[in-house]
C-alpha cells in the first residue's frame, strides 16, 4: 500500500480524515495516525537522556550518605536536593518503574503507619528525617538503600519498554503531576522543594517535547502553544528565583502574586500539552463492539 510520508495511512484514508468523513465505526480523529516506527528515534534519544540523568543521580546520593555519616545536616540537605533534581529530570520514565519508583520516590500517604511505616523509604523518607531533626546517623541506612535502588534504576532505564502512547502521554503528564503534587506542596512537604521540583519537571517536559518536535511539526497546531507555554513557565520560575536572591524559595515562601503567576503559567501550558497525545496517535480510536439492546430492567427504586 502506498502510504503518506510520516503516517501508516493510504492517501485515501488521509483525504477521508481531512474531509472529516465518518468511518465505519462512526469515529474520526482530526489527523491520520502516525506509524509507531516514527517514535523509535525520539524514544531512543529520550532513553539516552534518561540514562544520563540516572547515572548523574548516583553521585549526590553518595554525597548524601557521606554527609550523614559526617553529621553535616546542611550538606546532606544540599545533596538531597541535587539527587531529587536528577530523579525529577528523568520525568518520562518513572510511571513505568512500578515498585522501583515507590522505593525511590514513594510518599507515606497510602501506608498503614504513615511516616513511621517501614515501607516508607527513599527520597522522601530521607527528606522527612533531614527536615524534622531526626538524628543523622539514623538516616544512613536509608541513604544506603537509596544508593542501591539508584543503581538498579540506572540499569532499568536503559531497557524499560516505552510505547508510543506512553511516551506521548508522558509529554503531557509530567507537568500534571507537578501541578497536583509539587506546586501544591503535597510532595516534598518537609523541604518545601516544590518550586525547584516544578522547574525540574518543566525541564523534563522540554526534553521529551524536544524529541517529539520532528513528529509534531506539521501535525496540527499542537506544538507552537506548547513551546510558548513552556517558555512562559520557565521565565516565571526564573523570575521567582531572581526575586529570592538566586535561590529556589520554599513553596511556602512564595508571595501570593508569585504563586498565582506560577500556577497560572503551569495551568496554561498544561492546557496546550493536553493536545499532544491526540496529535501523536498511532491508531484510530478502536471501535467499540455494540452491546445488544435488551429490554431495560425495571428501574431500581434508588439512585
Amino acid at each position: 500500500m502506498t502510504t503518506v510520508a510520516g503516517s501508516a495511512s493510504s492517501p485515501q484514508a488521509v483525504a477521508d480524515a481531512a474531509a472529516m468523513r465518518p468511518t465505519a465505526a462512526g469515529l474520526r480523529t482530526e489527523i491520520s495516525p502516525l506509524s509507531p516506527r516514527a517514535f523509535r528515534a525520539p524514544v531512543a534519544r529520550y532513553r539516552a537522556y534518561a540514562a544520563r540523568e540516572a547515572d548523574a543521580m548516583q553521585a549526590p546520593v553518595g554525597q548524601l550518605a557521606t554527609a550523614l555519616r559526617r553529621g553535616d545536616r546542611g550538606a546532606a540537605q544540599a545533596a538531597w536536593g541535587r539527587a531529587c533534581d536528577r530523579y525529577l529530570l528523568l520525568g518520562a520514565a518513572y510511571r513505568a518503574l512500578g515498585p522501583l519508583d515507590r522505593a525511590i520516590d514513594g510518599m507515606p500517604g497510602g501506608l498503614r503507619r504513615g511516616v513511621a511505616d517501614r515501607r516508607f523509604a527513599g527520597l522522601h523518607r530521607l527528606e522527612h528525617g533531614l527536615w524534622t531533626g531526626a538524628p543523622l546517623a539514623s538516616l544512613v541506612p536509608w541513604a544506603v538503600k537509596l544508593a542501591r535502588d539508584v543503581h538498579t534504576l540506572r540499569r532499568v532505564v536503559r531497557t524499560i519498554p516505552i510505547t508510543p502512547l506512553d511516551y506521548a502521554t508522558r509529554a503531557h503528564e509530567i507537568l500534571e503531576d507537578a501541578q497536583r503534587d509539587l506546586v501544591s506542596g503535597r510532595a516534598a512537604p518537609w523541604s518545601g522543594a516544590g518550586v525547584r521540583a516544578t522547574a525540574d519537571a518543566s525541564a523534563a517536559t522540554a526534553a521529551v517535547v524536544g524529541t517529539l518536535v520532528p513528529l509534531l511539526q506539521g501535525r496540527g497546531d499542537a506544538l507552537p502553544p506548547v513551546q510558548y507555554g513552556l517558555r512562559r513557565l520557565d521565565a516565571e520560575l526564573a523570575s521567582v528565583r531572581r526575586d529570592h536572591g538566586g535561590r529556589w524559595p520554599a513553596t511556602g515562601a512564595l508571595t501570593r502574586a508569585q504563586h498565582e503567576r506560577v500556577d497560572g503559567r503551569l495551568g496554561a501550558v498544561l492546557e496546550s500539552l493536553a493536545a499532544v497525545p491526540g496529535a501523536l496517535e498511532t491508531q484510530l480510536p478502536r471501535a467499540i463492539p455494540a452491546l445488544p439492546a435488551l429490554a431495560a430492567p425495571k428501574r431500581a427504586a434508588t439512585r
Binding site: I288, L291, A293, A296
Partner: peptide, 23 residues
C-alpha cells in the same frame, strides 16, 4: 451513561459476552 457499546443507562453491561474487555 450507558455501558460502553450500549445505548441505555440501565442496560446490563453483560461482561460474560465480553471476557477480554473488547467493549
Amino acid at each position: 451513561g450507558a455501558p460502553l457499546g450500549g445505548s441505555d443507562e440501565l442496560q446490563a453491561p453483560d461482561y460474560e459476552a465480553d471476557p477480554k474487555g473488547a467493549r
